[in-house]
Design a protein around this nucleic acid. Structure first.
Lengths: 149, 149
DNA sequence: TCAGATTATAAGGTAACCTGACGAAAGAGT
DNA sequence: ACTCTTTCGTCAGGTTACCTTATAATCTGA
């Protein structure tokens, strides 16, 4: 029995996207663990999905991850305790702090980015360049239109 | 700043799929809540993503949802307490039980299926029939190849 | 027949979130 | 300069959705 929901004409694209995304995510997280990062969880890894954690403020991170400031605070505390980053006072705002990645943190970030890139290449390879480009174009259009609503 | 990870040539398709899938999922779950189902959570709704919950065994459900039997047990207990299903003994196996949807459970299932279908139509509409068909074909191919690995 | 597997369930634990409240600092209006 | 409101990070405490381990009942195969 399939694990994918079905419509009249075949599986739902929503369900298919969930499946592919989960495959990528599992692969990427496993890669992080295999690289020797055994003191962080999935939630910590997903904080790195942005351009970078370096020079960012906790509140800003919370908005982009769509989780509460408190959750971000806890995740940052863990990463700080394990030597991935420090939180320094913001010279331009006495209330705020700024996240600074340590060398170890930069290495982790680079590992995560390389894994994401490798998964991307893998998918492109399975689909062929032409269809991969079409896929990305359609997905970008969906993202753009859906975020306008 | 974008909430989507970027590669050299644009956003990662993995990140884009997460975005679209989350949009669909939020919309569907909101639809369930709007239909008046306020005594169930996201976890309960996701149990209905399969063909049907009717006539299924808890262990079977656990395998397909990829969660533990205990988690399934708790979720089923909640659904049973709120009148969506009953668990009856399996005549062919004294250890096992069989999930039976009540009328209320069937109504919920139908609501969920209609919402999923509506989201599918919405996406098809945004993309146009031709590109939607291409998208589904590519996603199906990815699912098929990825699950073979 | 009886050892081993499998079913549902119980008990207890944990990760990843949440809300609400707070002091400190910033910014706006008077 | 002085309040008023907002925003920042943080603390305390709670919930949800999972998990592992264990167990009684039952089934299965040698």
């Amino acid at each position: 029995m399939s694990t994918i929901g079905t419509s009249v004409n075949g599986p739902y694209v929503g369900a298919l996207m969930r499946f592919v995304w989960q495959w990528v995510w599992e692969r990427n997280y496993a890669g992080v663990a295999d690289a020797g990062y055994n003191d962080i969880t999935r939630a910590h890894v997903s904080m790195f999905r942005y351009p970078t954690l370096d020079w960012r403020r906790p509140t800003e991170i919370a908005e982009q991850l769509q989780i509460s400031k408190q959750s971000v605070h806890e995740l940052l505390t863990h990463l700080e305790q394990h030597g991935y980053l420090t939180r320094e006072p913001d010279p331009s705002d006495g209330r705020a702090r700024i996240v600074r990645l340590t060398t170890r943190g930069h290495e982790l970030e680079q590992t995560i980015n390389q894994l994401a890139h490798a998964s991307e290449l893998h998918i492109a390879d399975l689909l062929g360049d032409r269809r991969f480009a079409q896929l990305r174009l359609s997905l970008e259009e969906l993202r753009s239109k859906l975020s306008d609503e």
